[in-house]
Design a protein around this nucleic acid. Structure first.
Lengths: 335, 335
DNA sequence: TTGAAAGCGCTAACAA
DNA sequence: TTGTTAGCGCTTTCAA
């Protein structure tokens, strides 16, 4: 096993000082061509790779951003991860991806790891429980951008989806189609997306002058299993003529429940979902769905963050930006 | 914006030396309780977070492992990413996730970034084109573990799936059901998974004494679009009584093609796939599929890597380990 | 049980 | 255009 080269040895081989090697490494312009050539040759021949750890220590920058999402396995978050990474790379940043699993403890743990590793910025879809630590991060000069959710009393850039409006549109559509007993499987109400999509459900009923039956609303946890369980509860409790599920994973579960129950869509039950997983357009009939601009959500957040990082500490006091992106309802045959 | 604390200031506040603070930070046992208490209190009060960049430089370890997969958006790779991360965390390592996109250039770029950042080890699903650099990594003491694919002439731990055998099983099943014109959409043949699954297709035909019609074999690129395109080619060219698609993304495309063509499964066409995406068990009839132990693939690889890292440079010369995991055929109604 | 001090590998200010 | 050198923040020997 070869020992690892350092800049000093490269300098020695090339017959120059470490400063000159450093200049070559960093494309500093005022190096004689002949010198630069010699240094580059040594670097090539020895397979020297700069030690970024030392460089980062010295520069007090890491050119990296931390990303905390709840779950790479969910297509929503993996698209966000991809978008953030693409955008970061384009700006010469690398990303450190963490699966917070929607657990405040895991989230805090990752925030600390990212802080310790001195990432230049953090993007996260927050649980909402770590405001104090996030504030600490921000005030110590590590900018934070929130995705898809907010944290009360935290001053930082945020990129959101117009959940309530989009949700209202779905339900309004269903009501106008004549459905009157629309079951709704909500997400956790202490989460912005969960709460807002439920608000949309209510708002549509009010706007259309249809009375609300609260028993038709079940609160799930945004995971597949709960979609199936809550759908089955609704089926057992009584007469539903339609079902609207508030995110992709629960929709998968609910769809399975419908199939297992032998119900036909849309004859026996209307069906619509928030989020647009692959299978929604594959099944027959296609499932009407709300498509969120997920990639844009991630890339917008990354752009905002990079901008803050590049502007440096001067941007700490700059007014936080809040961007709301629009989700779109896609009508297929299911409702 | 508060300036960032360093260990010296903590030492000063606590009235001890930096060495003692370091000892407390690292749970060194021989520190007087009273001293430890005082230091911990200062750390808590000041929200001090150790600078891992400096620590890593000094220790010449980063407690991190690099992961290069082709695409987080694919469920296969995102499960691997999750498995690796879970396993890493359990061993107190963090992960740096990179989307190599199956491009040798991107892969090389990421390998260099990971090398520069002195990750303690690398896990990747290799394109196969960067053997020299991987060798450099290994010989300079950064262990590498390959997932799902091999690289000719590279001595390192590898975790694979028994693609050929599993693929043989699917096709054998189809042949025994009486299908005689089984279209096959293969993956890139220069990739291990692509080649082996095709071998299985041939092997089953030979074993069952059924002659092979090479026109029924189309080579795709493992992406959704090509699944759809190749399926349509097969439909146009003639009489197929079944279709077998060699990975999940192409299956999605092929399934869409079948639906758009108005073919019924399994009456008009038998259908089976390698990989088991969510929708395969949701549609009616369910699609018979090969389920790979994807999570295990990732966690096994991570375990091997962590072991090498922990054993240190002594393990460089240890014989590479090769583990082959078994995929399982799940019969549903589609074939 | 604690402290002093060297040094990890690099960058950048300053001097030449 | 190049070299000298201090120092980023930490860990770890060695000595006390």
């Amino acid at each position: 096993m070869k020992r690892k080269l350092n800049i000093e040895e490269v300098a020695e081989y090339a017959g120059v000082s470490t400063a000159t090697v450093s200049r070559v490494l960093n494309n500093y312009p005022f190096v004689k061509d002949e010198t630069r050539r010699r240094v580059l040759q040594v670097i090539r021949e020895t397979n020297y790779q700069v030690n970024a750890v030392a460089r980062n220590l010295r520069r007090k920058k890491t050119l990296s951003i931390g990303v905390i999402i709840s779950n790479v396995l969910s297509s929503f978050y993996s698209v966000i991860a991809k978008a953030v990474e693409d955008t970061a790379i384009r700006n010469r940043f690398s990303t450190v991806l963490c699966n917070g699993g929607d657990s405040p403890e895991k989230e805090l743990g990752y925030l600390k790891v990212l802080h310790e590793n001195r990432v230049d910025g953090v993007i996260l879809s927050p649980t909402g429980k770590n405001r104090d630590y996030l504030n600490l991060l921000i005030s110590s000069g590590i900018p934070v951008t929130l995705i898809d959710r907010t944290v009360k009393g935290l001053q930082c850039d945020t990129v959101l989806i117009n959940n309530r409006e989009a949700s209202t549109e779905v339900v309004r559509h269903m009501l106008r189609k004549g459905y009157r007993n629309i079951g709704f499987i909500a997400g956790p109400l202490d989460r912005l997306t969960g709460a807002e999509r439920l608000q949309g459900y209510y708002q549509a009923h009010e706007e259309e002058g249809v009375s609300i039956n609260k028993e038709l609303v079940k609160v799930g946890d945004f995971l597949m299993e709960s979609g199936k369980a809550k759908a089955n509860e609704l089926f057992e409790e009584g007469k539903l003529d339609a079902l609207y599920v508030s995110n992709c994973d629960m929709s998968t579960g609910a769809y399975v429940a419908i199939k297992e129950k032998g119900l036909r869509i849309p004859e026996d039950i209307g069906f619509a979902i928030f989020d647009d997983p692959d299978w929604a357009s594959l099944v027959t009939p296609g499932v009407s769905a709300v498509r969120q601009p997920v990639y844009t959500l991630g890339s917008t957040a990354a752009d905002l963050l990079v901008k803050r990082i590049v502007n440096g500490s001067g941007s700490v006091d700059k007014e936080p930006v809040k961007i709301v992106l629009e989700a779109r309802f896609i009508e297929r045959g299911s409702v």
